[in-house]
Design a protein around this nucleic acid. Structure first.
Lengths: 192, 192
DNA sequence: GTCTATAAACGGATAGAC
DNA sequence: GTCTATCCGTTTATAGAC
């Protein structure tokens, strides 16, 4: 393998990590290819070697986590008891937040993400609705619906907030899970 | 008064309302002056008559609510008992969300807002920190800190979410307040 | 108060050399 | 795999007419 080819995947990974950092800092629409290229120390043309359009970068940054979320929702829907559905979804969502931190906050609040992936990844809006549906159940009360929206947005943004970036994964996961369960009226675990 | 002057304030108000709508839909950076002008049925040059730069529009859209928030935080800080500080801040914040809906969600999550106003409005980041400080108090526990971040982000985004846009002000305020108090460990009110 | 016209810069994107 | 150079559409912003 030549020196040229050697770092292809490494550069691609660095590019995605850099793009994510800039996206969370400036928003997707507020981040230009020039900014990404500059941060990487290459030119715009080099970026275009790895991705043929900006939307592709946005999709590549968010898709892995979105696919995971899709699986989490499907697994939760497959649970038989209502309580288990909520527990499964909440645990999975919090775990996703903790492992991806800023990413979940990004696609929870940045309109640029939705715009960029609407032609690619399977129905983003539909996934959100299924997420809420699992949390509120059939014939939801208003209180439950509002609590579900507060929980989803709050957990995602708090998990990606710089103020909590210093917390280790296990600590953050336990705290977010406890708050989520409190919000949704699920019993807290006695021990860990 | 001439016909030209007559609608000056009316146009300015319509412009700000239109800009807010587009900002929440596409994000600040994802909204161009051309989009605002088109939505208003005027040209870009007409927009520039009212505001000499895009950042000024962003600032004008957000500043009224930010000034209110500044007052709310100051009033809360002036309370003598800890419980009263939290109660005051929470009630004020929720009321602000309900009256401005999408606006609070906007400056809670859109990086474009922070960028646009950092040279104008007095310390935005500082205000956020004072807000959190009131909620968590001196020597805060981790659980409280995380809960405060979840509450602030969750209430703001849920309050501006399209899914809850149909709720009337009184209903939304009561629901958000109850959830906020539950999150922050404050006793719920018995009656309304 | 709004328009047309235009300048200057920046954005995304491509061609072709090395 | 990265570079220089370039294209083109769009964006912010200004000048000046009505």
């Amino acid at each position: 393998m030549t020196a040229d080819v050697r770092d292809a995947e490494g550069t691609r990974a660095r590019l995605l990590a850099t793009a994510l950092r800039l996206f969370t800092e400036h928003g997707v629409e507020g981040t230009s290819l020039q900014m990404i290229a500059d941060a990487l120390g290459v030119t715009k043309a080099a970026v275009y070697y790895h991705f043929k359009a900006k939307d592709e970068i946005t999709a590549a940054v968010t898709e892995p986590a979105l696919r995971e979320l899709e699986t989490i929702v499907a697994d939760a829907e497959a649970q038989r008891r209502r309580g288990a559905q909520v527990d499964h979804l909440l645990a999975g969502f919090v775990d996703l937040i903790v492992r991806h931190r800023a990413l979940v906050a990004l696609f929870s609040s940045d309109p640029g993400v939705a715009r960029a992936i609407e032609h690619a990844a399977g129905d983003f809006e539909g996934l959100k609705e299924r997420l809420v549906s699992v949390l509120v159940g059939p014939e939801p009360e208003l209180r439950t619906t509002v609590a579900a929206h507060v929980a989803l947005a709050g957990l995602a943004l708090a998990g990606g907030a710089p103020y909590l970036a210093h917390l280790d994964d296990d600590t953050l996961r336990a705290e977010l899970l406890d708050i989520g369960r409190r919000l949704l009226g699920r019993p807290r675990r006695a021990a860990r």
